[in-house]
Structures are given as structure tokens and as C-alpha cells.
């Protein structure tokens, strides 16, 4: 199986604190990989590095064999990198090399095919559900100022396409009836699903879900698991952080376990479940189950 996302020696330090320490793992094409660990184990930090919200201190992330995250270049490194000097040239070969060297911004990573959701839901609260999902096709459409002002046929076609796409994804996530509802007025479970719909609308190859099951009841969790399966079956690889063991064990083919920023186990459900280090890490956690990770 091909590795869609490769994480190599990924490390993040905040001041003196090492939040993520030399983590290695691969996400294979077409699988559902679970990333679990006790509170503060560094799961969300890894997600933020994958999606470009902040750069790693050391280590790299490869997506479709292109480097998308690494420690930012120091000025010295920039000066000694020939591509940096030539980066302004409009030559595609150079541009491509430069893109592997520079720090990508989150929107560029999304454009390359990674979409994400957030642990604390971040919808566009005062826009309707439809308008929220319409953000997805944004990066593969073009219309700018002139299109908006003069509305040429291409722009009108594009608008129709955006609306159609958004409706399709709303329907896929079972939200078709809530199209014109403001995002913030939706029930919590629907908001979670709307966020996933919005992420899917960017047409990613990999979707990164940050605790999609947090705050859901039993019934909603079950529905969510089915949906995640469906997402995978539609051809999108899934990487998810989850706190709820039931969800993880229910849908993930492979699981990576983190504790204190380090990877302590990797493997299928049984391997992980019976790994003594995992049991140890989770025993201490059992009492403070409900406390939220920052």
C-alpha cells in the first residue's frame, strides 16, 4: 500500500516544552487511521503541523511524496539555498522545487488535498449552512473582482457549480434540510457534521478529523461512525484524533498511540488494545476522562 502521508521525526517544542517528540508514522492510501492518546499527548499539535498552522521544530511531513511541512529556513539556510535566490523566476521547474523548500501556508496545504476539522467547532457562525459549505469549492474556482462586477457567463456557471457542489455535500452529510439555517443555530451534532461537510467540499485526498465524536451522544456517535466509513468508501483517506475509545475501536483499521508527545504503539486494534504501555498510559487517564484538552 502506498503511503499518502508520511510523518518523519516530527518534533514541536513550545519554549522549553516538547509537545511532540520524534514521531514517525505513515497514513496509507484509503485507510482510516486513528491517532489516540491521553490529554496533552500532542495529537492536536501534530494536526496543526500537518495542516500548516505552525511549522515543526524538527522533522518533516510528506504528502503525496512532496514535502509539505518542515522547520522554517533560517536566513543562513535561505542564503545558501540556490532555489531561494531563483524563487521569483516564473519557471515551473524552479517553482516546484521552491515549493518543496519553503514553508507552506494552511490554504496551500488545503489546495494540495488535505482538509481538516477543528476540535472546538469553527464554523462561520453567521452564515447559513449552505454558505459554509460553499467555502469548500472556493480554492478550485477563479472568479475575482471582474467576475463579481460584470458577471460574465463563466462566472455565472461557476456560481451555479459552487452552489450545486455545496448542496451535494450537505446532502451527503444528511443536512439538506438545514440549508438556509445559520450555522450557529444548528444543534451541536449537526454542527459537527456541517464542519465535516465543509471540509469534504474542498475535495481532499486526506481528511483530518480532530475529535469528531467529542460531545456527541451514543446514537450520534454511531451515525458518525457510519458516515466516516462512507467517506472512506468514497475514496477519501481519513486520519482522526479521537478520545472516545468506542469510536476508535469501531472504525479505525490501524491506530497510533501517543503519550507525552512520543509514539508508544502502532498497529491494528488487537495489537494496540493489548499493548502494556497503552494500558498503562490509559489507566492513569481513566479518572479524568471528561477534562478537555487545550
Amino acid at each position: 500500500m502506498m503511503a499518502l502521508l508520511k510523518i518523519q521525526n516530527l518534533t514541536k517544542q513550545f519554549g522549553g516544552l516538547t509537545a511532540v517528540d520524534q514521531v514517525n508514522f505513515d497514513v496509507h492510501q484509503g485507510e482510516i487511521l486513528g491517532l489516540i492518546g491521553p490529554n496533552g499527548a500532542g495529537k492536536t499539535t501534530i494536526f496543526n503541523m500537518i495542516t500548516g498552522i505552525y511549522p515543526p521544530t524538527f522533522g518533516e511531513v510528506y504528502f503525496k511524496d512532496h514535502r509539505i511541512a518542515h522547520s522554517p529556513l533560517t536566513w543562513r539556510q535561505r542564503l545558501s539555498t540556490p532555489v531561494w535566490w531563483l524563487s521569483w523566476l516564473p519557471i515551473s521547474a524552479i517553482r516546484q522545487q521552491w515549493n518543496d523548500v519553503r514553508t507552506l501556508r494552511p490554504h496551500e496545504i488545503t489546495k494540495r488535498g488535505i482538509a481538516r476539522t477543528f476540535q472546538t467547532i469553527r464554523l462561520f457562525n453567521n452564515l447559513t449552512a449552505l454558505e459554509n459549505v460553499m467555502a469548500g469549492p472556493h480554492h478550485r474556482t477563479q472568479a475575482g473582482l471582474w467576475g463579481a462586477l460584470f458577471r460574465p457567463p463563466t462566472q455565472q456557471k461557476e456560481e451555479a457549480y459552487i452552489v450545486a457542489e455545496a448542496k451535494r455535500y450537505l446532502k451527503f452529510m444528511g443536512l439538506a434540510d438545514y440549508r438556509d439555517e445559520l450555522a450557529k443555530n444548528l444543534p451541536y451534532g449537526h454542527q459537527r457534521r456541517l464542519e465535516i461537510a465543509r471540509a469534504l467540499a474542498t475535495e481532499p485526498a486526506l481528511i483530518v478529523l480532530d475529535e469528531p465524536g467529542a460531545g456527541l451522544n451514543e446514537q450520534e456517535s454511531i451515525e458518525l461512525m457510519a458516515l466516516i466509513h462512507e467517506i472512506r468508501n468514497s475514496g477519501v483517506t481519513v486520519l482522526l484524533i479521537e478520545h472516545d475509545m468506542k469510536v476508535v475501536m469501531g472504525i479505525c483499521e490501524r491506530i497510533v498511540v501517543l503519550d507525552y508527545g512520543k509514539k508508544i504503539a502502532e498497529g491494528n486494534r488487537d495489537e494496540v488494545q493489548h499493548n502494556p504501555r497503552v494500558i498503562e498510559a490509559y489507566l492513569g487517564e481513566a479518572e479524568e476522562e471528561e477534562s478537555e484538552e487545550v
Partner: peptide, 14 residues
């Protein structure tokens, strides 16, 4: 989108 939530907008490829 930017006004509502800049981080989310960026994550949506804007």
C-alpha cells in the same frame, strides 16, 4: 469567511 473566522477560512483553502 475571513471576518467570521480567519483560521477556519484559511483551512478551507482561502
Amino acid at each position: 469567511y475571513v471576518r467570521e473566522d480567519q483560521v477556519a477560512a484559511e483551512a478551507m483553502g482561502i
